[in-house]
Design a protein around this nucleic acid. Structure first.
Lengths: 166, 166
DNA sequence: TATTGACAGTTCAATTATAGAACTTTAACA
DNA sequence: TGTTAAAGTTCTATAATTGAACTGTCAATA
């Protein structure tokens, strides 16, 4: 499967993986949330090759996650800022960080602590149900086919039969 | 940066990206949450090459996300099931699906609907603060260096100076 | 005036990873 | 005996990534 095919899958997870499912995009976005905006800033913070960085930034702009805006004329320079679509990735980022904090820390503990401005406390993110407010776990969820699900084999590509999507 | 270096970064996001930050791992895990357990099941559901599937399953087992358990003798066959560490990835998966549902759907709408068994309703996941229960947004969070943060240049690798981590 | 340096990339060869297809092994089944 | 199924492994061709050097614009400095 190619990257562009991934974007077409009738699966919201696959389509999102087409955006952030590579080695660098999430790290670039981490930097965005830490207020890095410029090419050199990303490059030195991440140690990514300039070639790939240029490529990934272009991709994230094309996908509407970042916006490229000029910050000076002569020489013309641009910076990269998160769009609303990009800002909406925050729950993903925070969930990832929390899993790492829980399962991948060494003896020294968490690299970062997160303070919720609203209540002033150091917190962990918790995923809850929008309807009842209770925490959600894998076992507590049932999935149903939605309107965008590919239903019949008739609609499927000739070669392979894929039937499921999260 | 190599994949193994990523695992060593003083950053919970980078360490988690070392686990799930490739083209296939998240898709394999999606299948796990949909109760796929066997090699052929993953292969036909995803269209991944057998070579890479074998490789990725090995990696996920090595990292403690999946467990490989025998389900029959002669010929010896194994299946792959989520460990607790793997089950804990559910909030990440669900956040990713929700972002895709919000920003990557086509005219036909969501591929899947999620029902919360607890309250019986179709829901969206919401990320809230563990301390006050209010929803968390990027702008509502302050980060502080934690105990596991790499502090001084003295401790850093010779080549590059990286100072930040989510 | 000439030189240096910052910034934002681009170019190119060498290495690595992934895709696609065929092959292997063990054992049940017709 | 021949076929099928599951769970891989092996192989070659193609695509992606790395590492390093190079380009162009302008400002500041010697």
């Amino acid at each position: 499967m190619k990257w562009d095919e991934l974007e077409e899958e009738p699966c919201s997870l696959a389509r999102t993986v087409a955006v952030i499912g590579d080695r660098w995009s999430l790290l670039i976005l981490r930097e965005c949330f830490l207020r890095t905006r410029r090419f050199e800033g990303f490059q030195s913070a991440l140690g990514i090759t300039r070639h790939l960085l240029a490529e990934r930034l272009k991709k994230l702009v094309r996908l509407g996650v970042l916006r490229r805006i000029p910050y000076q004329e002569s020489p013309k320079r641009h910076e990269y800022i998160l769009t609303q679509k990009g800002l909406d990735l925050y729950p993903i980022i925070l969930s990832i960080v929390h899993w790492g904090d829980t399962h991948m820390v060494d003896e020294r503990g968490r690299p970062l602590l997160h303070e919720h401005k609203g209540c002033g406390k150091i917190f962990d993110p918790v995923l809850v149900c929008s309807e009842c407010g209770e925490p959600v776990t894998a076992r507590g969820v049932h999935v149903h086919p939605g309107p965008g699900k590919r239903v019949a084999v008739a609609e499927m590509p000739k070669t392979k039969a894929r039937s499921r999507a999260v």
